[in-house]
């Protein structure tokens, strides 16, 4: 199993993006590419080649699930890439939607900036176990 280094993070809220950058880069030591929208993330995907994609669920324009669907349709995500949704609410109907997209992991919002990187790493380890 390769160590986790590269994370693509998609979040429309600039304040949350900034604190996640702090949490994942400065606290967690990860290489982060953060994008303000699903459209921008799709453009970054092939060049950046992330190991983990962290996707906010509710965003204006393309939401998280729509972004992931588009990525999958383009064939730019392999099954070695872990996709994690970040959301402030989980409803059983939504869970089914996530699972239909092959997403089994969710990080709840609000997140703790001091433990976010550990949480992502733990999910990465589980994904590769």
């Amino acid at each position: 199993m390769s160590d986790l280094r590269k994370v693509l993070y998609v979040e429309d809220d600039p304040d949350i993006r900034e604190i996640a950058e702090l949490a994942l880069e400065d606290v967690g030591g990860l290489i982060l590419n953060s994008c303000a929208s699903g459209e921008l993330a799709i453009q970054q995907l092939e060049v950046f080649k992330p190991q983990v994609i962290l996707l906010d669920v509710m965003m204006p324009g393309m939401d998280g699930p729509e972004t992931l669907s588009a990525m999958r349709d383009m064939g730019v995500i392999t099954d070695t890439v872990l996709v994690i949704f970040m959301t402030a609410k989980v409803h059983p109907d939504e869970l089914q939607r996530y699972k239909n997209l092959g997403v089994e992991q969710v990080i709840s919002k609000p997140f703790d900036p001091m433990t976010l990187a550990d949480e992502v790493r733990a999910l990465w380890d589980t994904f590769n176990a």
Binding site: D13, D15, I16, I19, M58, T87, A88, K109, P110, D112
Partner: peptide
């Protein structure tokens, strides 16, 4: 309300985040 509910707690405003969550629902 969704924006506040999802963000406030991360910045330490837990009471506000929870109140926003309740009203959002």
């Amino acid at each position: 309300l969704h924006t506040i509910a999802g963000a406030a707690g991360t910045f330490g405003f837990h009471t506000l985040g929870e109140a926003a969550r309740e009203f959002e629902q």
